[in-house]
Design a protein around this nucleic acid. Structure first.
Lengths: 110, 110
DNA sequence: CATCATGCGTTCAAATAGTGAACGCAGTTT
DNA sequence: AAACTGCGTTCACTATTTGAACGCATGATG
């Protein structure tokens, strides 16, 4: 399933290292190869990524994943949304942590 | 799947409201009734929760979910671990947000 | 040149996880 | 007593994820 999180993370990783392999990507994302392959194809499908074959001595047959103009634009948008989301998450965490601290002391008193 | 997150959240919700229904729990957790039922049973299975029937006028046949001594102790531990985890997450978020801010400005320049 | 070893993307059967409609039960209401 | 409501339980179905296995292309080895 291609969630916003993966959309963002993949676009970022690909932009940083266009010759990244699907296996590297999978490891970086913490998901399986199959899922990574699925997500990449989905991104190509909707035109955010473009693949171009290339060869090099270390990676026998590999692709370059290139962000399309649409992909770059989308990444900016997605990044901003992600940022907003993260900031909200951050604030929520502050509350949660305070709450947890209370619970910890509560629990110890029981 | 009963992850630490659900273990913690369920113990917390149950402690706060022992006569909570599985449907309420499901809604609070944001998962299905089936999954909630599964998680509750798992917690009873490992001895963290105890069920005791009770009736009341509003809830026809309902259970009380009671944290066992083991459950209370476990909750303390789990809460502390969760707290540690959240604090780490919090710190990581601070970095991520800073990074995202840079990306946003980077993206705008491209 | 021929063989092997390595690393790539791809596939897909199997495993795992998650859903929610439907059921029987027991009180409450009409 | 019949209808209604809310409870936990079940489970067939769907969705999601995994990773071993494959074919292919290159580099290395004899």
């Amino acid at each position: 399933m291609l969630t916003d999180e993966y959309r963002y993370k993949i676009l970022k990783l690909v932009q940083e290292k266009p010759d990244i392999s699907q296996r590297e990507l999978a490891k970086a994302l913490g998901v399986s190869l199959g899922k990574t392959n699925f997500c990449l194809k989905a991104l190509v499908e909707v035109g955010l990524l473009k693949v171009s074959n290339f060869r090099n001595s270390k990676n026998k047959l590999a692709y370059m994943y290139v962000l399309t103009p649409k992909g770059i634009e989308h990444k900016a948008t997605v990044t901003i949304n992600f940022l907003k989301h993260k900031i909200k998450e951050y604030e929520q965490l502050a509350h949660e942590i305070a709450e947890l601290r209370n619970e910890v002391t509560d629990d110890l008193q029981e």
